[in-house]
Simulated scan of single mutants.
Amino acid sequence: MKKVVLITGASAGMGKETAKLLAQNGYEVYGAARRQERLEDLKAFGVNPIVLDVTKDETITACVKHILAETGGRIDILVNSAGFGSHGAIEDVSINDAKHQLEVNVFGAMRLTQLVLPYMRRNKFGKIVNISSVGGKLAGPLGGWYHASKFALEGLSDSLRNEVKPFGIDVILIEPGAIKSEWSNIAYDNLMKTSGNGAYKDMVSKFANMIKNSDDKSSDPIIIAELIKKAIESKSPKARYAKGYLAKPILFVKKITSDKLMDKILASQIK
């Protein structure tokens, strides 16, 4: 029997590549995103497109109910891939924008998790994959609310992993480095709009150049899709998997470096 997978953020980037890869490798995949038209091409790969806005509870519950009805009460694997990065100085980002960042990256993922867990517990099997970031372990300037969302996802995943392990459910964190996606353009646009002309404009200018220069070096999202496949097919998956441009070096340096030295390293990269 095919394992049933729900993947959010399936209209682009890592979510889309994961949906395609799993559908082509024997999984029953539901690819979810806000815009139906951006999911249509997934049908050719055997993916079932479904509309979902992770900031609206009514669409979250409708999505889960629809899949459960079609599969006889099964969602075996949940991949929380929907997310974005809202950049700007903490002083400049409006609280409404900050709340939206957390709604998408944290609360939407956790609400879906709440809804699928009863069925995973009943079936004594489940895999919950949360897409974090190296930015969930290391926070630099001008991305405070994004980092807050990923730090929160890391902590929630650690708690959840220990809560649901007795029921045969695994919780897996994926920590990508720089990956080719719409993320950098969105982050750049938000950064310039929010803090490009204020007190932080000099830092913003240097940071924006760093974002642009990283695009050519970023890894293809297929490597994260392959990592997710490896993780969910492991009988005893690790709590965390990291891959992508600079992911492992960044996490290693963070692990062995003091906060003061790390601040100096970050400052040197923005000069």
Rank of each mutant, 00 (worst) to 15 (best):
M1F: 15
K2L: 13
I7E: 00
A10M: 01
A12S: 15
G13R: 06
M14W: 07
L21F: 13
R38M: 10
E40T: 07
E40N: 10
L42A: 10
N48R: 09
P49D: 06
D53V: 06
T55L: 03
D57N: 04
T61P: 09
K65M: 04
I67D: 00
L68E: 00
G72M: 05
D76M: 13
G85N: 00
G88Q: 12
V93E: 04
D97Q: 08
L102S: 05
A109F: 02
T113D: 03
Q114M: 02
L117Y: 12
P118V: 14
K127P: 08
I128D: 10
S133P: 10
V134F: 02
G136M: 10
L138G: 06
L138H: 06
G143K: 06
L156N: 12
R161G: 09
D170Q: 07
V171Y: 13
I172L: 15
L173I: 01
E175L: 05
G177R: 03
I186D: 14
K193F: 13
G198C: 11
K201W: 11
K201P: 07
M203K: 05
V204Q: 01
V204K: 12
V204M: 07
N209A: 09
I211M: 11
K212P: 03
N213H: 11
D215N: 15
D216N: 14
D220P: 09
K229I: 08
K229M: 09
I232M: 07
E233Y: 11
S234V: 03
S234P: 05
K235Y: 10
A239C: 15
I250C: 11
K254S: 14
K254V: 04
S258P: 12
L261K: 00
K271W: 02
